[in-house]
Amino acid sequence: MASDPTHHSRRVRRLRQAMFVTALALLVLVLLWSSFGSGTWFDARVTSGPAQAEMIDAVMRGKNQQGQPYILRAQVLRKRPETKSTYDMQAPDIEIGTRRAKDLIQAQAESGVYDQQMQTITLSGTVELRQTGNRTIRAPHVDFNMQNGDFMVQGPLQMESPARRITADLLNSTAENKTHEFTNGVITLFAKEQK
């Protein structure tokens, strides 16, 4: 029995439509999955140079492995060509929630390196890091572990709050037990309590 050519072309069209819808659904699923995983870039203006692409005013939102949210912004973000997931950042501005949900760390710097695979951020230049409790840390170099909120500050550094100021050469800060270990020439100043 000979098939109807009109019927055949209708079936092909429906099949194509179904494939298109399926592909679209898969794309949405992938995007959703990635937004719950390591993060999704958006709001970025992508420009292509002769050697590499770069993102302007890039913003990334995501959650670390412990489910804490983070936002990573950079004026310019470039993926290092020799790596899979390492990005150089100009004027990075980050916000990271730590395991203790009410704690938030914000940091700004002149430049930074974000390793998406290792979930680490290295901030350099004039780094200013602000913690819950009106504390500010200023230092030339900060290594931040986004997985657990720990960070290491290389000095000369200064941690300042309304009641005290600590200067040191090195600081290792642990988010889990909220411990800060200062080393090398540590001096602490206490403001006299107002009566």
Partner: peptide, 24 residues
């Protein structure tokens, strides 16, 4: 000089926020 700021220094200072103390 009771109204002057207090400066405390040591080779290491460990600030333990959960215990409200610093060990020098």
């Amino acid at each position: 000089s009771p109204d002057a700021p207090i400066e405390v220094s040591g080779q290491t200072i460990i600030v333990q926020e959960l215990k409200n103390r610093a060990l020098l």
